[in-house]
Design a protein around this nucleic acid. Structure first.
Length: 682
RNA sequence: GCGGAAGUGGUGGAACUGGCAGACACACCAUCUUGAGGGGGUGGCGCCGAGAGGCGUGGGGGUUCAAAUCCCCCCUUCCGCACCA
């Protein structure tokens, strides 16, 4: 990244740009760098995703795609005619070995090493290939890869198809990537879209070798024998494929791979999109890579007794490229631990993602001075029960830290296979349809809102606006509502706190409650349950807030009971304490203030969460919806726990229901306990 | 192209295992607070319709006594990956 003046890993390039500078295109340079062999764990990283049931499907899928496993075969094609330094054959990777009899050319990436051999003597060809390379680079830089027109150059040379022994022309094409597979493909125009387009353009042979039907099934009468081209489905049968004719394509893949292995020109293989992790960074701030370069002994690791390598102070950061550490002789000059001679210290530092891959393990033993962390402590705490972060780390931090855990397990530092059991990805804050970012200039600081409405209102509004796993389109409208609500709470407590100040209010309520007061009590316990459940289980803080609002509305509706003296002081005190406790996670400042106002002396934070009492939450009467053929006709109230027969009776006795039933015959009556009655009529 | 998520009033969003669609808010309307504005209180507010009633969760089919929710097809939006051979 030119802006960071440092190297980036594959994962840190987002759409051709730097992950930290989203409008700065990365440039490519050849450099010698340190890599961590993440690919060693490709298979395990992929396989274990199936067990991460506490992770969002989206993240698991993104990781699967990123690892990009694909099974296929490597096949050698002998080059016809003189060869050079790159050898006498071309190895291609294919997932469709069954179509090899339909391969009518070989396509090489422009950077393929063989290209130089093949075109060495033809300068006009060479310049055309350089054009292809330049074109690929430009398309990548400008993110126009998909719209780039496919074209290529015939090298004038041929290979021999190891199955059919036919001669196949070798082309160099701009759509072949050196970075995937072997940088060379066998082109099967009849059964691959890109190959088809390419062959059409250059008049390369198109040979159909699979048909869209199964071996056992005869061709349906009137069915077209020839498939629509290109025919890429795999539910098919082989033709024009020598001894493999009439095999289903699964069988053909197995048999042809075995054949290639027996004859020594191919083998089954699995490729991955995941690359090793380049961790060298040309930054001052970073963990030094503890390696030395000795002229005599080569690359020598810094001995454990000399770890950690500490960064020097007073470094000038110039952004000139290369590590700033390289200009500090005191840091660079070292002694070779093997021969005692002069050695040069590695001046690149590690990617920050190295540190973030295991920082949480350090939390388990922050005092450990002679090791990263204590394994026993890590065993006690790990894996992490619940991890929270943005989905933007799905293929960065979250894949690196999984890798790091597996590596540490293999060197016996930890005993867990995965770092995190449950992952929660919170949504992004969107403004005007775009992710908020400094580069876009659409960042809305919460400070203005805090200044106008206070931190409590701002926080609570953010929680109320949407559940936290969803993206939130930030808009100012709405915060007033939350602010008003907190005002309502404040005024209610200010008016009624005196009830709580009388210490005798700790006494249980003995007197008979008026219906309105009983309703408040009931609503209180229903609210405690709703808030507790939504808070613990689903993390739906918006519905928690809504529930508390409903409760406060209920309190306002009962204020006349208070002024009429029909609201027992102990209950009123309990109601207010519970309200403040419920509010505390959402509006901590106001809650603390009200807690004091209620005369409480202990710290609000340490006070136990209010208890839900099922008996007090219970409704005395339940309203049933009465439907006729699924359409709502009436509502009837019955005492809670009424037997089904009674509910049915009451429903059928309702006037509106009777009217709806007139002249109809009742076929069935369904009673859903506590909910509704559905009368099915003919 | 592949994969993921989502589509519910004017708006943000509720409806948790199929059971009263629209909780709670915003906006809007009415009303009270001696006038206006502000603040506060109370009430109204899916659509069509005078009403009875009908319609209604992106569209179309299906399963069911009952569908926002389950199944099939299609459309749209957002996100991720991608000449992946």
């Amino acid at each position: 990244c030119p802006e960071c003046a440092t190297v980036l890993a594959n994962e840190q390039v987002v759409g051709g740009n730097c992950w930290r500078h989203e409008d700065t295109p990365v440039i490519q340079k050849e450099l010698e760098q340190w890599f961590v062999k993440t690919t060693q764990y490709s298979d395990e990283l992929l396989r274990d995703l199936d067990n991460l049931e506490g992770w969002p499907e989206k993240v698991r899928t993104m990781q699967r795609n990123w690892i990009g496993r694909s099974e296929g075969a490597l096949l050698d094609f002998k080059i016809d005619g003189p060869t050079g330094r790159a050898g006498d054959k071309v190895t291609v990777f294919t997932t469709r070995i069954d179509t090899i009899y339909g391969a009518t050319s070989i396509q090489l990436a422009p950077e393929h090493p063989l290209v130089a051999d093949l075109v060495g003597s033809d300068p006009s060809l060479l310049s055309k290939i350089e054009d292809l390379i330049a074109e690929q680079k430009k398309a990548r830089d400008q993110e126009e890869v998909e719209s780039m027109e496919k074209h290529g150059v015939f090298t004038g040379r041929y290979v021999i198809n190891p199955f059919s022994q036919e001669k196949m022309p070798i082309w160099v094409a701009n759509y072949i990537l050196m970075g995937y597979g072997t940088g060379a493909i066998m082109s099967v125009p009849a059964h691959d879209e890109r190959d088809y387009a390419f062959a059409e353009k250059y008049g390369i042979d198109i040979k159909i070798v699979v048909l869209p039907r199964r071996t056992s099934e005869p061709p349906a009468p009137g069915e077209d024998e020839k498939p629509m081209l290109p025919y890429t489905a795999e539910d098919s049968m082989l033709i024009n494929s020598g001894e493999f004719n009439e095999l289903s394509n699964e069988d053909a893949m197995k048999k042809m791979t075995a054949y290639a292995e027996q004859h020594g020109f191919g083998k089954a293989t699995t490729t991955y999109r995941l690359k090793d992790w380049g961790i060298s960074r040309q930054r001052y701030w970073g963990t030094p890579i503890p390696m030395l370069y000795c002229e005599k002994d080569g690359v020598v690791p810094v001995p454990e007794s000399q770890l950690p390598v500490l960064l020097p102070d007073n470094v000038e950061v110039t952004l000139q490229g290369g590590s700033p550490l390289g200009r500090i002789p005191g840091f660079v000059n070292a002694t070779c631990p093997k021969c005692g001679g002069a050695a040069r210290r590695e001046t690149d530092t590690m990617d920050t993602f190295v540190d973030s891959s295991w920082y949480f393990y350090r939390y388990t033993s922050p005092q450990a001075n002679d090791k990263p962390f204590d394994t026993r402590e890590a065993d006690y705490w790990f894996p992490i029960d619940q991890y929270i972060g943005g989905v933007e780390h799905a293929i960065l931090h979250l894949i690196y830290s999984r890798f790091w855990t597996k590596f540490m397990r293999d060197i016996s530092l930890v005993h867990n296979d995965e770092p995190v059991t449950r992952l929660f990805t919170q949504g992004m804050v969107i403004k005007d349809g775009a992710k908020m970012s400094k580069n876009r200039g659409n960042v809305v600081s919460p400070d203005d809102m805090v200044a106008r409405f206070g931190a409590d209102s701002t926080r609570m509004y953010a929680l109320f606006a949407a559940p936290p796993d969803r993206d939130l389109d930030w808009q100012e409208a709405g915060v007033e509502g939350v602010h008003r609500f907190l005002g309502r709470v404040y005024r209610f407590v200010m008016r009624n706190a005196s009830a709580a100040l009388d210490r005798s209010s700790a006494q249980p309520v003995t007197q008979e409650l008026s219906p309105k007061v009983r309703q408040v009590q009931r609503k209180l316990h229903q609210t405690i349950k709703r808030v507790t459940d939504d808070f613990q289980g689903r993390w739906h803080f918006n519905t928690c807030v809504a529930a508390i609002m409903e409760f406060v509305n209920e309190l306002y509706a009962a204020e006349d009971e208070i002024s009429a003296g029909r609201f027992p002081a102990p209950l009123l005190a309990d109601v207010q304490r519970s309200l403040v406790l419920l509010l505390e996670p959402f509006a901590p400042y106001l809650a603390a203030e009200l807690w004091e106002t209620l005369g409480e002396k202990d710290t609000l934070l340490r006070h136990p969460w209010p208890k839900y009492d099922a008996a007090l939450a219970k409704e005395d009467e339940i309203e049933y919806a009465v439907q006729v053929n699924g359409k709502l006709k009436a509502r009837v109230s019955v005492p809670a726990d009424s037997p089904e027969d009674f509910v049915r009776e009451q429903a059928l006795a309702d006037d509106k229901v009777k009217a709806a039933l007139e002249g109809k015959q009742i076929a069935k009556v369904i009673v859903v306990a506590g909910k509704l009655v559905n009368i099915v009529v003919r």
